[in-house]
């Protein structure tokens, strides 16, 4: 596992579990929404309301990270996590812009923005893992 570590504090363990759980919920909501759109005839108004659903677990994940950063007592670890989040955010934004320009200018199919949260999480976790490895 990417973040396997035996020395996690209770707040790190709990926040990691919550973050992972809400990431899975986000994916399930996306999949359910996709299937609903494809296989059922729902009125447009209701469909637009349903499209707001994936925002709930994503917002909860951001809340979980914010709460973790607020409660983390180790300032060095807090700095590493913040840097990793910035890496995740930066890579996601750069990727989004590059694929957006490709889609606009060259009419090619870029990565769907649905995957932004996955790119953010994976890049952030890889950055955190590298930071922890560098500071062993």
């Amino acid at each position: 596992m990417l973040l396997h570590c035996n020395h996690l504090s209770p707040i790190q363990r709990r926040s990691g579990f919550l973050f992972g759980s809400f990431l899975i919920v986000t994916m399930l909501v996306f999949a359910t929404l996709h299937l609903t759109q494809e296989h059922t005839a729902i009125p447009n108004t209701f469909l637009h309301l349903l499209e707001l659903l994936p925002a709930i677990p994503v917002a909860t994940m951001i809340f979980v990270v914010g709460r973790y950063l607020n409660r983390e007592t180790d300032e060095f670890v807090r700095m590493l996590v913040t840097q990793s989040l910035l890496w995740g955010l930066g890579v996601t934004m750069v990727g989004d812009i590059v694929f957006g320009v490709m889609f606009e200018d060259f009419h090619t199919h870029g990565l769907s923005q649905v995957y932004n949260i996955d790119v953010f999480c994976i890049t952030g976790l890889i950055a955190l893992r590298i930071q922890l490895w560098r500071n062993q």
Partner: peptide
């Protein structure tokens, strides 16, 4: 200090200035 070992290492090596 109730911090991680990485914190102590980073402070010792001058990569991190404590609060």
């Amino acid at each position: 200090l109730a911090v991680s070992r990485q914190s102590v290492n980073a402070i010792e090596t001058g990569r991190f200035d404590p609060s």
